[in-house]
Design a binder for these strands. Structure first.
Lengths: 199, 199
DNA sequence: TGTGAAATAGTACGACCGGTCGTACTATGC
DNA sequence: GCATAGTACGACCGGTCGTACTATTTCACA
């Protein structure tokens, strides 16, 4: 039982470090210290650095599910649900209590030329996420909230661009207008897809 | 004279490493070995890791200028020049001979929560780049190629989103359609700004 | 309350990190 | 033609990395 609590604490501190420093910034020594544990005590939970990284990515995905997906799914199907998801998605890490940026987004650029299980795991998470965006968009089309001619794949692709641009301008450039820019871009994307929007 | 050649070689190998592994992946030992130099011989050129990083970022900017900006500036002012720039910008690292991705783009996500001169340098480069995009867009507006109501800042912001989304989908997800998606997104952005487009 | 397993600590390892040292060699300017 | 500055070398610094091994503590349950 104690073990479970320790593991939760490790994932908590590890996720914070991951969001700030990226995958390569999470080290066993620092994480052990942050969690008030010895390096070997930590090692007993994750038998390798790789397993720790995989667990941290899963924890990030779980947190995103709790803070983004679940509340969004309570909105009515179609456009409202899609809007709800996107609004909670953009900038979700800080609302979820993370001190840094989105772990998956930074990993997308950190590991783009690497190989191995960690990269594959992120690729799987990212594809799963895009599949969710795709299905919510398709649902909005099916319900007549968006045009039937909408290129759904293209829609999702551009949506991801908005997310990444927001991440870069909010977190790196520290542009206070990032939120507004993202919302305007999303509105424009919806308008192009034929959504009925207030002005 | 010999010194100059060594420095060029160091920047060359360093930039390759930077594009593949990111800033944290460039280490003095590995770079020295790649350039067939001792670590201390390398140190004679760059008196600290930080100075090396700054020099590498400048070299990346120089390369981008040669491969992206200069050829684009030969196109007629206004929309043609803007189009020329964007077309050469998207995916420029591989066309410039780099084995990895865009060093600035990955640094935008790698250093978003850090501090120091390196971060500031990247911020300056990025702002300079966005200012270039802004001025070319403003020129296209002034010449009547784009609507006068165009929100130029917003236009540039979304353009950066297209660049980042292309980077992620091409380099990480290895989606062969990345190029097409980026072009379609750019065309849609131009159409929204009132550009006269074929079909 | 005693015991065995689970959880954690302790210690050590080889490799690599950024950086410094003294020392050569070599190109360049006076 | 010689002083000087730049360039490169190999050895080495203290520190941290991931990982392995053994010892100790903690705790649930008999």
């Amino acid at each position: 039982m104690k073990s479970q609590a320790t593991r939760v604490s490790l994932l908590h501190h590890g996720l914070r470090a991951l969001s700030v420093d990226g995958l390569s910034g999470v080290t066993l020594g620092r994480l052990a210290e942050a969690a008030s544990l010895s390096k070997s005590g930590l090692f007993a939970h994750f038998r390798s650095k790789e397993q720790l990284e995989l667990a941290l990515l899963d924890e990030a995905a779980r947190l995103a599910h709790v803070h983004v997906v679940e509340p969004a799914m309570r909105a009515p199907e179609g456009l409202p649900r899609l809007r709800g998801l996107v609004e909670r998605w953009i900038g979700w890490p800080s609302r979820a209590g993370l001190p840094g940026g989105c772990p998956v987004a930074s990993a997308l650029f950190e590991l783009d030329d690497s190989e191995g299980r960690v990269r594959e795991h992120i690729a799987a998470l990212e594809k799963e996420w895009r599949e969710l965006l795709r299905s919510l968009t398709a649902s909005a089309v099916a319900l007549g909230h968006l045009n039937v001619e909408t290129d759904i794949e293209q829609f999702v692709w551009e949506l991801c661009g908005i997310y990444l641009s927001h991440h870069a301008s909010a977190r790196f450039l520290r542009d206070p207008a990032a939120e507004t820019r993202a919302r305007h871009a999303f509105d424009a994307l919806l308008r192009r897809a034929g959504a009925a929007l207030p002005s």
